[in-house]
C-alpha cells in the first residue's frame, strides 16, 4: 500500500517573526507509521498541528490524496478522518471524562430542535474504549482535571484512535504512561497501521520509535534533516541523529570515564 495519502511539499510556518518550520517535505502513506523525531523546539508539534488543522501553513503545499488542501480548522481535519493526540492533550479539566471523549462529535438522538446527546451510549462507549486501553475508569462522570496524568493521556489516545478514520497523529503520547500502558499504545499504533491507517508518531524515545516506525522524518531547528525508510537506518544511527549526534557521544564518553 503506497498510494500516498498526504504529501507535504516545502511546508513553512512562521509565528510572527519566529520561523518554526522551513521547507519541510514528506509523504504519509496509509498502512505505515511515520515517526517524526527531533530535539525540543525542533518544530515537531508545529508540523503535526498543520496536518491537524490547528495552524495553517504559510508556504508550500499540502496535498490530500493528490489534491491541494488547507485545513481551516481542526473540525475540517477531523472531517477528513484525521484525529490527533496533542502534546498538551487538549482536555477541558472541568468537564467529565465522557464529555471530553466525545467533545465536538457527540452522538445524538432525537431530531430537529429536540436533538440531544445520547448520554448513555456516550458513557458506555467511553468506558469500553478506555478499558481497551487498559485504563479502568471508576466513573465516566469524573472531571478530567481530577484524573492522574497517565489516565488523562490515555483518555486522549483512546479518543483519537476512536475517531481517527484515516490518519492518527500522536504527539508524544507515551510521555506520562506506565510500562504496561506504553506497551498498549505501541500495540495500538501497530494495529491501526495494520487496519490501513496512516499513523504519525512523535516521540523522544528511540526504543519506542524504531520498533514501530516504517519511516522516519528528522527535524532540527525547523529544518528537515531527511526522510529515512527503516531499511536505510539503524537504531543506533537514529538515536544519534535525534540527539544532534556529537553531543550524545561526548556525554556517553563523559559518563563512562566517571
Amino acid at each position: 500500500m503506497s498510494d500516498t495519502l498526504i504529501e507535504l511539499r516545502n511546508i513553512s510556518k512562521f509565528y510572527g517573526n519566529i520561523i518554526a518550520l522551513t521547507g519541510v517535505s514528506t509523504t504519509v502513506n496509509p498502512g505505515e507509521v511515520t515517526c517524526v523525531l527531533g530535539d525540543n523546539g525542533a518544530g515537531k508539534s508545529t508540523f503535526i498541528k498543520i496536518l491537524a488543522g490547528v495552524h495553517q501553513h504559510d508556504e508550500g503545499e499540502l496535498l490530500l490524496e493528490g489534491e491541494e488542501v488547507t485545513f481551516s480548522s481542526p473540525r475540517a481535519a477531523l472531517a477528513a478522518g484525521i484525529a490527533t493526540v496533542y502534546q498538551d492533550l487538549a482536555m477541558v479539566p472541568l468537564m467529565s471524562v465522557w464529555r471530553n471523549f466525545f467533545l465536538g462529535a457527540e452522538p445524538t438522538r432525537g431530531f430537529g430542535p429536540f436533538r440531544q446527546i445520547d448520554i448513555e451510549k456516550a458513557k458506555q462507549i467511553a468506558k469500553e474504549q478506555l478499558a481497551e486501553m487498559g485504563i479502568d475508569i471508576r466513573d465516566t462522570e469524573q472531571p478530567v482535571g481530577t484524573l492522574s496524568g497517565g489516565e488523562r493521556q490515555s483518555v486522549a489516545i483512546a479518543r483519537a484512535s476512536y475517531f481517527g478514520a484515516r490518519v492518527l497523529i500522536l504527539d508524544e503520547p507515551t510521555s506520562a504512561l506506565g510500562v504496561k500502558q506504553s506497551g498498549v499504545v505501541l500495540r495500538r499504533i501497530v494495529e491501526a497501521r495494520d487496519r490501513g491507517l496512516a499513523v504519525i508518531f512523535i516521540t523522544h524515545n528511540p526504543n519506542h520509535a524504531y520498533p514501530v516506525g516504517d519511516r522516519f522524518v528528522i527535524l532540527n531547528r525547523g529544518h528537515s534533516m531527511g526522510n529515512f525508510a527503516k531499511e536505510d537506518i539503524s537504531q543506533a544511527e537514529l538515536t544519534q541523529m535525534m540527539a544532534g549526534g556529537a553531543e550524545l557521544e561526548a556525554l556517553q564518553h563523559e559518563l563512562a570515564t566517571h
Binding site: 482536555m91 436533538r115 446527546i117
Partner: peptide, 29 residues
C-alpha cells in the same frame, strides 16, 4: 438547563469557557 445538560451546544459552551484552545483542537466550532 436542558441545553446545558443534554445538547451538544451545551457541551460546547462548557468547553469553550473551560479551555477554548482545547475545545477548538478537538473539533468544537
Amino acid at each position: 438547563a436542558w441545553v446545558l445538560a443534554k445538547t451538544r451546544f451545551g457541551s460546547w459552551t462548557f468547553a469553550v469557557g473551560g479551555n477554548k484552545d482545547a475545545a477548538r483542537s478537538v473539533g468544537v466550532p
